[in-house]
């Protein structure tokens, strides 16, 4: 009986913790989004964050985009050849990239590169009382720290996704057309014929949502690092929370990808 009660207590405790966490993350998102629209706008810090989140991610996006396109070209060519449909290679590569792989993979790359950095940076600011110091100086941390990051995330992710898509399409072209000998004209004309505005719109909406999601999860995890379970204060607390943030971001991206696809299709 006592064991049973202990189990229920633990379950209740866990449920309360997660409901609390969800609640504070929701409030965090609300305050941050509101602060984005409150003047005076943080233009210079936003540009700086676009550089950190966006520009510094370009190399990894180019690299992964090219190889994703190349492997799509390789796999697509061999699969389509079985049906004698090599001419559709261009549209297969482009549609996979624009609708699905571009937004998802670009978001996962940005999570690994910039999301972890954001969580660690804000987490360290929290444990070294820098966030308390801001509040004591009557400076709103949401406006001062979060607003530029949210803006930068929402601006950078669609652009990075576009770069990812274009590099991927070129990667598919190099492998499919130049190495495996698919028809060059068919590669681009099938793409031109089959890719519609809805496909680009879907990719754009996804990347926009993922941008918001990455900054939201990484920043709020760092901001509330002192309330995290099994971590708490200290360098270890920040490192555990950063890992959790990256895992949560990645899972959330894949989960939201499914829901967004089902809504937008």
């Amino acid at each position: 009986m006592m064991k049973m009660l202990g189990l229920f207590e633990k379950l209740g405790d866990n449920a309360l913790y997660y409901v609390n966490q969800a609640g504070r993350m929701g409030i965090f998102l609300f305050y941050s989004v509101v602060s984005v629209f409150r003047p005076p706008y943080k233009i210079f810090p936003t540009v700086r964050q676009i550089y950190i989140i966006g520009t510094l991610s370009i190399f990894v996006i180019l690299f992964t985009g090219a190889f994703t396109g190349m492997v799509l070209g390789l796999q697509g060519y061999h699969t389509l050849r079985k049906f004698g449909a090599q001419g559709l290679l261009g549209s297969a590569v482009a549609l996979s990239l624009i609708r699905e792989l571009g937004p998802v993979l670009a978001a996962l790359m940005v999570t690994g590169r910039a999301g972890s950095a954001i969580c660690a940076e804000i987490g360290i600011m929290r444990i070294s009382e820098q966030i308390d110091a801001l509040e004591c100086m009557a400076i709103d941390p949401h406006r001062f720290i979060m607003a530029p990051k949210f803006m930068a995330g929402i601006i950078s992710l669609p652009l990075l996704t576009a770069i990812f898509d274009v590099t991927g399409i070129l990667g598919g072209y190099v492998v499919g057309v130049k190495l495996l000998g698919a028809n060059e004209g068919a590669y681009f004309s099938s793409m031109y014929k089959d890719v519609e505005f809805e496909d680009i719109y879907m990719g754009f909406v996804k990347s926009l949502c993922f941008g918001l999601l990455i900054i939201w999860i990484s920043a709020s995890k760092g901001y509330y690092v002192h309330l995290e379970r099994g971590g708490g204060f200290g360098a270890e607390g920040v490192s555990i929370t950063t890992t959790n943030a990256v895992v949560l971001c990645s899972v959330a991206i894949l989960l939201f990808d499914y829901f967004l696809t089902s809504v937008l299709l």
Binding site: E129, D132, A133, C136
Partner: peptide, 12 residues
Amino acid sequence: FGVLFQNAALFD
């Protein structure tokens, strides 16, 4: 208010 934190809490 002005606050001097124990570890100074400067923005590093």
